[in-house]
Design a protein around this nucleic acid. Structure first.
Lengths: 154, 154
DNA sequence: ATAAACTATTTGACCTGTCAAATTGTTTCA
DNA sequence: TGAAACAATTTGACAGGTCAAATAGTTTAT
């Protein structure tokens, strides 16, 4: 139907960033579909729930640090999750600006209900990866992430 | 300032997907900043330019396949890039639905101008990664990506 | 005590990503 | 041929992401 020219020099996917972007896009789609079908949650909601399961009573700013998410987005999302009955917020005694957030029983229960599916998914994703390779993989991810903080000055 | 409870069981970042999402978010921010400062391009524009440098005269659908991008988004983006003078489109002789897209000289020139910075960036990102580790890394990325196509049926 | 500096959160504006339906052109096949 | 099936692209609606400015509360330093 069409004839592409042969790759003249560097292909887009020889950029790590291209590969990772494509991977991420595919993972997002899979995660979104799974969460929606199993629990009617969005990926962001799932992430917040897991983060709060781990860092109990965290504030918006603390969550933002952990999940690397925009505070504006977070503010709105938290609001909607409180309205949906997934999160409860109560004001810090000493600093009235900060709200400590916690999961409601409803959210805890939803989380417990989906967790098996999400863990099964993780295992499927890594099914063919040996422990040694996985270790290398994480190490490389860490290195790339560290380098991605750099903002060039040249 | 606050006391987190100790991680009770599984931390969010023990999910590969969390780690990758965070990495991606950081890479996006870096790439966006670099492209904006060096050439006033968005990440998506850069990606399209590179894709068209590689697959000359590709159509929207072909590009969508390569970069794994939504056709709707692509349609709008292409339109705006044509308006900006970055892309030229001409209709296929045999099928009037398809437009073959190509870079304008302006886009070629912009691309050449930024390429050194983008390549330098890639090298910085991978500076501390040995070739062997990188190979393992890419293999794992491929495996995860393959597994991410799966849509569970349970 | 109080103005200035700082911090947490919210809000507004705007761009990107995703899904589904609509539109337009092409092919198949009775 | 011409209706049905198909394919490429566009459009609409809406969630997610990013940036910057606004708001509200707290701390610091005089």
């Amino acid at each position: 139907m069409n004839t592409h020219d042969a790759p003249s020099y560097r292909t887009p996917s020889s950029f790590v960033t291209f590969r990772l972007a494509r991977l991420q896009s595919s993972l997002n789609a899979q995660g979104t579909a799974l969460l929606k079908s199993k629990a009617g949650l969005s990926l962001v909601e799932w992430r917040l729930i897991q983060t709060l399961r781990m860092f109990k009573n965290a504030s918006l700013t603390e969550i933002a640090d952990h999940v690397q998410m925009d505070k504006g987005q977070l503010s709105r999302k938290i609001k909607s999750m409180v309205e949906k009955g997934l999160l409860s917020a109560n004001t810090d005694k000493h600093d009235q600006r900060v709200q400590h957030l916690a999961l409601t029983p409803k959210a805890e229960q939803l989380s417990a209900q989906i967790m098996p599916f999400m863990e099964a998914r993780q295992q499927r994703l890594l099914a063919d990866v040996s422990p040694e390779d996985l270790e290398v993989f994480y190490r490389v991810v860490d290195k790339i992430e560290a380098a991605s903080k750099y903002r060039g000055v040249e």
